[in-house]
Design a binder for these strands. Structure first.
Lengths: 109, 109
DNA sequence: TAAATATATGTCAGATATGGCATATTGTCA
DNA sequence: TGACAATATGCCATATCTGACATATATTTA
């Protein structure tokens, strides 16, 4: 299984190796997960660019290191709201957040 | 007070008329609220375009009429996640969702 | 190598968002 | 006008997300 496919399934809350491997994601579910992954990548890119550790970013957005890690990994337990708020806290504009959503390019925002 | 300003404050969970009228929103809070309002407008525009009632849309996205109304009104109790999922359910692509986020134009998505 | 720092993963009690429901308000049409 | 459909608003029990914490696993540096 390709790494990104596996990641997508995991982001959907599935455990790879299950019988559910064969389940299909609906186009909507798929799009939703891709958006979250894209936002997570963008968050990591921005954080790295500013030479911040997850701990430092967590303090800035009043979250926790573990939640930052989960955001960047596309963990199914994190909301788009938190991702957006974090990006804004890193100085992204709404337009940059928007670009992060549909551009596969992690540099986008 | 301008209508959109009032709406923004209400979306932030404030009651206009309070002493809190004078509080300022941080740029991040402001941007976040504007994004939610923009998504709400886009949702309403798309729903109208497809001649769907709030009840019909609610059934399609397995939500409720009241939640649809709150989404479209920018109620502070609704998440961006639900707005995004609803737009996707109305046939919007991730790119259109993205455009809905930063474009003030409610037709955008 | 070991120590130090950064990131990943699992869990959980408390906080927030959710659908559903009742009901108020608005809009439409005869 | 009244009857009816659509939308708005308030409430609540439950589901989901949250920060915090512990701890495992990299990654870096001396």
């Amino acid at each position: 299984m390709r790494a990104d496919k596996r990641k997508k399934l995991e982001a959907a809350g599935w455990t790879v190796g299950d019988a559910q491997d064969f389940l299909e994601l609906s186009p909507d579910e798929s799009a939703y997960i891709e958006m979250k992954l894209a936002l997570g990548h963008s968050l990591k890119a921005r954080r790295s660019q500013q030479h911040l550790s997850q701990v430092e970013l967590a303090k800035r957005v009043k979250s926790s290191q573990s939640r930052i890690a989960k955001m960047e990994a596309g963990d199914p337990s994190v909301s788009i709201d938190l991702l957006v708020k974090s990006l804004l806290a890193l100085g992204a504009s709404p337009e940059e957040v928007a670009r992060a959503i549909y551009s596969g390019n992690s540099q986008a925002a």
